[in-house]
Simulated scan of single mutants.
Amino acid sequence: MIKHVGVLGAGQMGGGIAHVFAQAGYEVVLFDIAPAQLEKSLKGIEKNLGRQAEKGAVDAAAIPGILGRIRSTQQMEDLSGCDIAIEAVTEREELKLDIFRKLDGIVKEGAILASNTSSIPITRIAAVTKRPEKVIGMHFMNPVPVMKLVEVIRGLSTSDETFRATAGLVEKLGKEMAVSADYPGFIVNRILIPMINEAAFALFEGVASAEDIDKGMKLGTNQPMGPLTLADFIGLDTCLAIMEVLYGGFKDPKYRPCPLLVKMVEAGRLGRKTGHGFYRYE
């Protein structure tokens, strides 16, 4: 039975994953190498719980208990007793592979190692461990406390037992599961990120302004936000990284990253997190 959950990476995704597990009653160890990021993440979780309480989604009296179930650490060894460890670091393959090599030697035998990767093949990640049957993809959507979907991706060696345990976790979190085969981008990002890339091409080629591209997709296809606004929200570096995984994985020119997207990432215009992407932010 899974009781203790480790989360690696205290960014927006890792903090959100820690939030929903603690809210569901699990004991959580949140790891990050940066103390300032851990502090920021814990404050963000507390703030988001407050918002949920205002909307009646969580009992305000339960918030101290939820926060008390999250322990932060800068030592990966503190995840040794976890029943499942979920990696949620930057979408860089070499970094993820290095983390899984280390995790495999730290986390107790029989524990599940999961990745929140949005595009990198789970089979490739599992291959660097000595427990490939215990490795699985759990791709949460952003923002994690709000979005209902978790993509679950089975690697070539993922066991039925690991899959069933993961499916049970998704259900206990009150979320819905979509199961994907282990191909680059899985379901959501294989469809979503090329749409964002095509919107960048439309801007790059002068088809329309960023505002009109977003207005067209919002009002013409009933999307809650336009693709360029969404790209800024996700982070242009993340969008580019996923496009590069798709392009490298399928070798199909339709996945070629837009040159404008590449240049913007090179210039450090990454979207909301840097204050400048396809739009400017305060």
Rank of each mutant, 00 (worst) to 15 (best):
2 I>F: 12
2 I>T: 13
4 H>G: 08
6 G>E: 00
9 G>C: 02
13 M>T: 01
14 G>R: 00
24 A>F: 02
28 V>E: 01
29 V>C: 08
36 A>H: 14
38 L>M: 08
41 S>H: 00
45 I>A: 00
65 G>E: 13
67 L>Y: 12
68 G>Q: 05
69 R>Y: 07
71 R>E: 14
72 S>Q: 15
72 S>P: 12
72 S>V: 14
72 S>M: 14
73 T>K: 11
82 C>R: 11
88 A>D: 14
89 V>Y: 05
90 T>A: 14
92 R>A: 13
93 E>K: 15
99 I>C: 14
117 T>E: 09
118 S>I: 04
119 S>K: 04
120 I>Q: 07
126 A>S: 12
128 V>A: 05
130 K>S: 15
131 R>N: 07
133 E>W: 12
136 I>V: 15
139 H>K: 02
141 M>E: 07
144 V>L: 06
144 V>P: 08
146 V>D: 07
149 L>Q: 09
156 L>K: 13
158 T>M: 08
166 T>I: 11
173 L>C: 01
174 G>S: 06
180 S>P: 05
182 D>M: 01
185 G>K: 06
185 G>P: 01
189 N>E: 03
195 M>V: 10
198 E>P: 06
203 L>T: 02
209 S>C: 10
211 E>F: 05
212 D>L: 13
216 G>V: 04
218 K>H: 09
219 L>C: 01
221 T>Q: 06
226 G>T: 10
228 L>S: 02
230 L>H: 10
237 D>C: 07
238 T>Y: 03
245 V>S: 02
246 L>H: 07
249 G>Q: 03
252 D>Y: 00
254 K>Q: 13
254 K>H: 09
262 V>P: 00
263 K>T: 11
267 A>T: 08
278 F>L: 02
